[in-house]
Design a protein around this nucleic acid. Structure first.
Lengths: 270, 270
DNA sequence: GACGATCAACTGGTCTGACCAGTCGCCTGG
DNA sequence: CCAGGCGACTGGTCAGACCAGTTGATCGTC
């Protein structure tokens, strides 16, 4: 909300409360602006801290605090001894997934919401991807499902990697980078959050069965994508996630997942 | 992905690459752990920097960099001169909103993607809200639509506020705080991004007509919610956004919006 | 006794200068 | 031509200092 209501002719002058802008904020903002504006593309390098100190005319601690903020936002990465200075990473979904992970771990929102949200995003990715995919996308997805099937029982880590890549390709095929990034962030957050629970299940020997089911789900979804049936792919995606995660959730969250799962029962004809 | 595949019996030992853990990271992690773990509830205070310096046995700059990271994550807030030390804020959705806003503003994704994404999130909010809303929600939504109708031509700012609140109530009624946060962040990003374009249209006198259409759309959506028809509400929501924003977008982005708009034409019966 | 100004003891924000451990690039000796 | 070493950097950290602002008690006044 950048503007107060300028129309209101009240006596209360609509000055915004002036809060002092810290020096490190100004520095961080300037750099961030350049990165977001494309003037500092990913892969390019920032000057060294001592040089920045001269350019901004502030102390090194101020420069360092600004760089810390940018680094914690995932915009840059710095490494000691690097004579080229900090590396510009550009906008990445990592911050998003970290924030999502924190939210999911907090009382504000739980794992159930996270997975429900993933159901929504994945389903919409499928719906769009079914419409917009290329032949190349389908080939790559087929490869990935085959790889999942091959790695299935022995290599859970590789399996998870291929699974993640499958979703990333789908999200990319949806043609919406924002959707893709969010879907990835949520995916990562779910993986990170539920890992501790899943290792127990895996230890109990359910892992192989879960992976087999997952491969089957992915094949069905891939078929739907191939047939350009977005609604079917979306429905299958929701069901797959529900089947996969519902057993590991408390009953309340299961109801939530079911709510996201069910297509509208009383849809009026037409 | 914190774990390498432990099962693979290859010669490659699965050591994780050792990267030095900076002192400020350890400090930030310890504090963050306490905050997320509830040991430092929102509203409580951290010791002063000089005291922290003693407790962690590091220099003040290290403490300050750690606090900067925590502050940029929205976990704490500090104010100069405060004898009580930094205030613990707890997990807040602001980080998420900022991250989303950055993504939306970056060159990675344009306005079209942003609005398409909003179509998806809003539609899913409607779908869930139609199922889960309370009588209170409906009453509040009715109030808001009436207020929009009342403010319609004269007070664009108030209108926009009521409109935003409408969507927030819907998102909250969806029962998924995560979805609500993202929807709000995207909504804000859209408003911020398109404002400069809309003021021109408003100056051209289209504002009143646009607002009248918007009120009608909201009434229809509200009716669908009242009838618990999630699919209809979702479809109406998509259409409303499409009609509202498509005229202001370049043709390429219009096609994108249409892709998100159309229900699947060849849906199999059943 | 209530009240407002004053002041000292803080706070966080910033600067300076220094040291360390690592990294890179050059340069040299084989 | 290459291995090794030697600076000249880098970022990470520390120590100490100063400033402006806040706070709360103290003190003089009414």
């Amino acid at each position: 909300m950048p503007a107060e209501s300028p129309q209101r002719p009240t006596a209360r002058a609509d000055f915004r409360p002036v809060r002092p802008v810290r020096a490190y904020q100004r520095v961080a903002e300037q750099v961030e602006e350049r990165i977001l504006g494309g003037s500092l593309p990913p892969g390019s390098r920032l000057p060294g801290e001592r040089e920045l100190m001269r350019q901004f005319d502030v102390g090194r601690s101020t420069i360092r605090e600004a760089l810390r903020v940018l680094q914690s936002s995932g915009l840059i990465r710095s490494r000691p001894g690097d004579p080229q200075g900090a590396e510009v990473l550009g906008v990445s979904p990592d911050t998003l997934s970290h924030a999502l992970g924190r939210l999911a771990r907090s009382h504000l929102s739980g794992l159930g919401e996270l997975i429900q949200f993933r159901m929504l995003l994945d389903a919409e990715s499928y719906r769009l991807a079914a419409r917009l995919h290329s032949a190349d996308d389908l080939r790559r997805l087929t490869e990935l499902v085959d790889e999942m099937a091959k790695l299935a029982p022995q290599d859970p880590h590789g399996f998870s990697e291929a699974d993640g890549e499958f979703h990333r390709v789908v999200a990319k095929a949806s043609g919406n980078a924002l959707l893709a990034l969010c879907a990835r962030a949520v995916h990562d957050a779910v993986v990170e959050a539920i890992e501790s629970k899943l290792v127990r299940a895996e230890a109990a020997g359910e892992a192989a069965a879960a992976m087999r089911r997952s491969v089957a789900h992915h094949r069905h979804i891939l078929d739907a994508l191939r047939a350009c049936d977005g609604a079917l792919a979306a429905r299958l995606g929701r069901q797959a996630l529900h089947e996969h995660y519902a057993p590991h959730l408390p009953p309340g969250d299961r109801a939530r997942l079911r709510a996201a799962l069910e297509e509208d029962p009383g849809r009026p004809p037409g």
